[in-house]
């Protein structure tokens, strides 16, 4: 049975729209497509999410940048001393790593409230569920770009010039965003159903932070590199961090990122196709 369903849109339906309980991929795909066309809505909502937090403060969202900068500088100096590594090598590494980690971890930690946090919307108005995903990705990206100012400060201070290699960070960031969107979609659905999941994810994220080479350089592992290589987060960090620091990432990172993305696509896709229609019952 072919199903078309975009009742929420302004377009007039000439064809009757049939809705029933079914778990088709077609409707999940339609949700994604109509979600994308609603960019004026999620663009505005995502932007408002940030403004709301910093309204009437002088620095506004730059407060994020300021606190991040303080963290980078103080941790950079401390750890360069602790690890006995030259600061002009370690601080830029830490800075870029923290910027990426910040983006990555918010996807994981806020993914749990993706749908439960939008309960009032979900229960009152029919919007494609991906609107909530795009909204959260967009506001996280805005925050990332605010924080990214620090990077320019750091490369200027330490006189690093990554050259055209830095452009490789753009596809890297795109891959990370895609994975972030897929993961928060999956986490959002599971957490709507099982409310313990966000707590669990939060505690895991803390551990992942220390296990992933962000505060320490992967070279410290010496011959035990499998510790980093087995960590999917390491590869996703590396495809952005490498270019920003002027080195082309090792092909193994791209291969790993490709496999991670594929897995993420399959899992999120299957969950979404199967349980999309249940989300409104769960929240």
């Amino acid at each position: 049975m072919p199903v078309t369903d975009n009742v929420e849109l302004a377009t007039m339906q000439k064809q009757p729209v049939v809705r029933g309980h079914n778990k088709s991929w077609g409707r999940a795909w339609l949700d994604i497509r109509t979600g994308l066309t609603l960019w004026p809505l999620w663009g505005r909502l995502g932007w408002n999410d940030i403004l709301q937090r910093y309204r009437r403060s002088m620095l506004g969202p730059l407060w994020l940048t300021a606190s991040m900068a303080i963290m980078v500088v103080s941790l950079g100096i401390l750890y360069a001393e602790l690890f006995k590594t030259p600061i002009n090598d370690f601080l830029p590494f830490l800075c870029v790593g923290l910027l990426i980690w910040n983006l990555m971890s918010t996807f994981l930690m806020e993914g749990g409230t993706l749908f439960t946090g939008s309960e009032s919307y979900i229960k009152q108005v029919r919007l494609p569920y991906t609107v909530y995903v795009f909204r959260s990705c967009w506001s996280k990206l805005i925050i990332f770009f605010h924080n990214f100012l620090i990077y320019f400060g750091v490369i200027w201070y330490f006189g690093i010039w990554p050259g055209a290699t830095a452009l490789l960070a753009v596809p890297g960031l795109a891959i990370l965003l895609l994975n972030g969107a897929l993961t928060s979609l999956t986490l959002g659905m599971i957490s709507a159903r099982f409310r313990d999941i966000p707590q669990l994810v939060n505690s895991v994220v803390q551990i992942v932070f220390f296990v992933t080479p962000i505060m320490w350089k992967p070279e410290l592992l010496q011959h035990r590199t499998y510790i980093a290589d087995a960590n999917p987060f390491f590869h996703l960090v590396e495809i952005i961090r490498g270019p920003l620091l002027g080195s082309v990432p090792d092909p193994k990172h791209y291969l790993a990122a490709f496999i991670i993305t594929l897995l993420n696509l399959v899992v999120a896709g299957m969950f979404f196709a199967r349980f999309r229609s249940r989300i409104s019952y769960w929240v």
């Binding site: 369903d5 009742v7 929420e8 849109l9 302004a10 377009t11 007039m12 339906q13 000439k14 064809q15 009757p16 729209v17 049939v18 809705r19 029933g20 309980h21 909502l45 408002n48 403004l51 709301q52 309204r55 009032s120 919307y121 979900i122 229960k123 009152q124 108005v125 029919r126 229609s277 409104s280 019952y281």
Partner: peptide, 29 residues
């Protein structure tokens, strides 16, 4: 279309406008 029925079908022709909470999404700031 907020709840998809567990069984049975809903067929609609025309744009549906639910007016359940007309203050939804109002941002105070």
């Amino acid at each position: 279309g907020i709840y998809e029925p567990v069984s049975g079908t809903v067929t609609s022709r025309g744009r549906i406008s639910p007016m359940f909470d007309i203050g939804l999404g109002i941002d105070q700031e």
